[in-house]
């Protein structure tokens, strides 16, 4: 392999960044995108499918309902509370516990799986990240060998990049513009 280098393009405009993502995808170039805002257009352009978090929320919710059922019915069997002529296991009030535990478990699994899939916490900056991508600029980082870098840089400039910086991918930790 020839020397790897990291190209970091900066975009002032969301549309230009979306356009650049499209161009890079058409040219089969692997890339990372940084966005200062949660952008639906960018997500769509990257082609990332639906988040797997939703499946965990569903599983958490179902687990919550079952836990609520087990806890209420189990404790009622273990300690019979006979009140008002109602059956020991009476479903209507248990629905509330089942519902609340569904919300609790579903919510907690959403939070936990979000951290898991977002790979948080992340203490070291991701290669190519710069503070301006947390402020008002969009960024695209591409790792490539030097032979291709000129072509990729031209593609990104054509798409509207303000600036394309060359970085050594191994010296990323010190990046802070």
């Amino acid at each position: 392999m020839s020397a790897e280098i990291e190209l970091v393009a900066t975009f002032a405009d969301e549309e230009e960044c979306v356009h650049a993502v499209g161009v890079l995808k058409r040219n089969a170039v692997a890339f990372r995108v940084f966005s200062p805002i949660p952008s639906e257009h960018l997500l769509h352009a990257i082609g990332r499918g639906l988040s797997p978090v939703r499946k965990f929320v569903l599983m958490g919710g179902i687990a919550g309902v079952l836990t609520g059922l087990a806890v209420t019915v189990g404790t009622s069997w273990e300690w019979n509370l006979v009140a008002g002529g109602k059956p020991v296991v009476s479903i209507p009030p248990f629905i509330i516990i089942m519902f609340e535990l569904m919300v609790l478990f579903g919510g907690l699994s959403a939070a936990l799986s979000f951290f898991l899939f977002a790979r948080l916490p992340q203490f070291d900056p991701i290669a190519g990240y710069s503070e301006k991508f947390g402020a008002d600029r969009f960024g695209i980082a591409v790792e490539c060998d030097e032979a291709h870098s000129a072509k990729i840089e031209a593609l990104m400039r054509e798409a509207g990049a303000e600036e394309v910086a060359h970085q050594d991918p191994r010296a990323q930790a010190s990046v802070a513009n």
């Binding site: 008002g84 002529g85 109602k86 209507p92 009030p93 629905i95 509330i96």
Partner: peptide
């Protein structure tokens, strides 16, 4: 609906 039902059920 359930908010009314559960109150009536409990009060009996």
């Amino acid at each position: 609906l359930f908010a009314q039902y559960i109150v009536i059920w409990y009060g009996d």
